[in-house]
Amino acid sequence: MRRTTLFTLKTPYREPMEIVGFEFGDPDGEEACAIVGSMRGNEVQQTYTCARLVQQLRLDEAKVMPGKRILVVPSVNPFSMNVSSRFWALDHTDINRTFPGYDKGETTQRIAEGLFSAVSSFSLGIQLCSLYMPGEFVPHVRLTRAGEITKESLALADGFGLPYVVINEPTPFDTTMLNYNWQVWSTNAFSLYGHTTEHVDEAGAVLMVAAIERFLATRGVLRLPVSDAVPPRTIEEAGLVAVRTEKAGGFLMRHAEAGDHVEAGQVLAEVVDALDAHVKETLRAPVSGQVFFCRTEPLVEQHIICFRIAADE
């Protein structure tokens, strides 16, 4: 293992911010796979998962195939994490909306460029991500559609052994994400979404580390036996059935968790008045299927998607 500094930013009154990378395998080998952890200051689980991956790859370093190189970047934005700010603390910009970056531009564009120049030439790219809405997911691989290369990636995505592969259509704003820009630069890019974001879930981290190692094994980067896995179900994000608070806000009293199988008509949650606890709205499953996403915040506004269900086939 080689610890390297990929990018340094001088700052007022704080130590320089470093983006640290861990390299495994042949130093002159082909740039096989880059794994990027947290980019936002609240992505605690993503950072932890990468730290565990670094630990695991140290144990497995002898199994990196000759001529191959792996790079792990656990934390792109330690500065925000250290001050409990989700976005870049000075101007609240999201580094994951500034790719491919620009070395003469704004601060976050420089950070993005610093990372991107270190990871853009890898053949495979994996990012551990969080969604903007607070909640829990069934662990899955997400692909952002960016032309032919996404089709190619889709054929590789079962290597992770995760139960779902979700494809989403980017908004114009999404074309500034790392995942999208990796693909523009011909990297097969995968975003991994685990159960949680803001707290450490040990089992979830172990699962993701195993999923990444399994993927590396299927791609001939790591010499490891590939465990059996049920082929994933591939779904379009737009095909997930949303269940929203249509009428009311209040306490969200949930009766279903991410991963549960629910029947059509089943009560998923009640929206309860915050002052007198009467039930204002009952959220029911419109279809039978697996709860793919559920909101975990105790309070909810009207017009908030609280569940997304992958309908039974």
Partner: peptide
Amino acid sequence: SAELPVNEHL
């Protein structure tokens, strides 16, 4: 207009 969690509308 949308209901906020506690006795208020946005």
